[in-house]
């Protein structure tokens, strides 16, 4: 149970970074931390105590043996790819914003109002 709580705390740390930080890059880091905590959570769901890797070198190799659930692993692999795309896009937008405004401070990036 304690791992799930730690995982949740990691999520909150990321959310704290997103909500309170004023630097664009730090916001992106906060989002990345949240993403890792969710990935960790998904991996923990599929974990089985003393389980082996779900690989079949020969047929029936896993018969009557505990093995970890492979589906969450496939899911987080997809989630990591998506996270890579989002983070790359966010970083490139942040660089472009820096070029336009000359700062990473979100308080000074405020041309949209109302």
């Amino acid at each position: 149970m304690i791992v799930y709580i730690l995982c949740f705390i990691l999520f909150i740390v990321g959310l704290y970074g997103v909500v309170t930080k004023r630097n664009l890059i730090k916001i992106i880091i906060g989002l990345a931390i949240m993403e890792y905590s969710v990935n960790l959570f998904l991996i923990l769901i599929g974990y089985v105590n003393n389980g082996t890797a779900p690989i079949l070198p020969v047929p029936d190799a896993l018969k009557n043996k505990p093995f970890v659930d492979p589906l969450p692993q496939a899911m987080i692999l997809t989630a990591i790819v998506i996270g890579l795309a989002t983070t790359a896009l966010l970083l490139s937008i942040a660089i472009r914003l820096y070029r336009k405004y000359g700062t990473f401070d979100i308080r000074k990036i405020n041309s949209l109002k109302g």
Partner: peptide
């Protein structure tokens, strides 16, 4: 700026 805002909130939503 709009895209950054959209991405951060959209990213939180996705997570």
């Amino acid at each position: 700026e709009a895209s950054f805002k959209y991405q951060v909130l959209g990213g939180v939503a996705s997570l």
